[in-house]
Write a protein that binds this DNA or RNA. Sequence first.
DNA 1: CTCGGAGCCTGTCTGC
DNA 2: TGCAGACAGGCTCCGA
Length: 272
Amino acid sequence: MPELPEVQTIVNDLQILTGDTITGFWTDFEKAIKTRNFKKALVGEKIKSIKRLSKNIVIELSSNNAIIIHLKMTGKLLINKQVSTNNLQQKHLHHIFSLKKNNALVFSDIRKFATLELISRDKLSEIEKTKGVDPFSKDFTLETFSKIITKHKNKNIKSILMNQAAIAGIGNIYASEIPYDAKLNPMRKLSSLTSTEIRLLHHSILKILTKAIEMRGTSISDYRDANGKKGGFQNQLKVYGKAGKKCHKCDTIIAKETVEQRSTFYCPTCQK
DNA sequence: CTCGGAGCCTGTCTGC
DNA sequence: TGCAGACAGGCTCCGA
């Protein structure tokens, strides 16, 4: 599910929980929780800040520990006060954080891939070091990006975009949409890119992710923001999920190929 | 070391 | 209509 724009949208929505206190925790799926005594360590803690780390949501607590959540494919975090409960949400509701001011933060997850963990500040710094550069950090310059391209010169565009240790936050949807915007074939080997093409790709990463955040993310089927609403970027998708349809620029049929076990979509004419 | 493949789960869609 | 199989936004682990 959520890639950078979706996680960022959720994190933005969750900001209203800053300063609130966790008063309880309930779960019916312990397996998702990677920390022992999770509940005990949480209750009574105040939420200091909520931020995004790659595709993770990090809730920093007054104890200096942090809850780190990965939504994986179908995880949803919903501020309960503003959510209409329907049967589907109830069925897949697996964790609830009770809160003093905002009633509750509800966690649902159809495929049960999502994980929650309580980590120390040191552990958080360690995890941060394993992540590549975030496209929205000041470090994501053309120069840095060019170095990443050089370092992974034997890989292709799709795989470098998906590599979290190189560039943090891009997943399978945007890893198809970004090359389309840059008019580059996702299977192009990085060593073959000219400096102009590298600049185009760098530009498209920022352009597409920025637009997607403005539209509050992409809802293919399951993704919802923290208020339970769909995003809008699915209406802007040019190639993802469009195999067999015409490219809106040139009428060529959009192709689908598997790259590293993930579906990849592109226009064979527009993308060189 | 890198790399491909399996695995984690449930739901939906397609084709026979 | 029934049902098997493929596929789905992510990531980790394992063996070769």
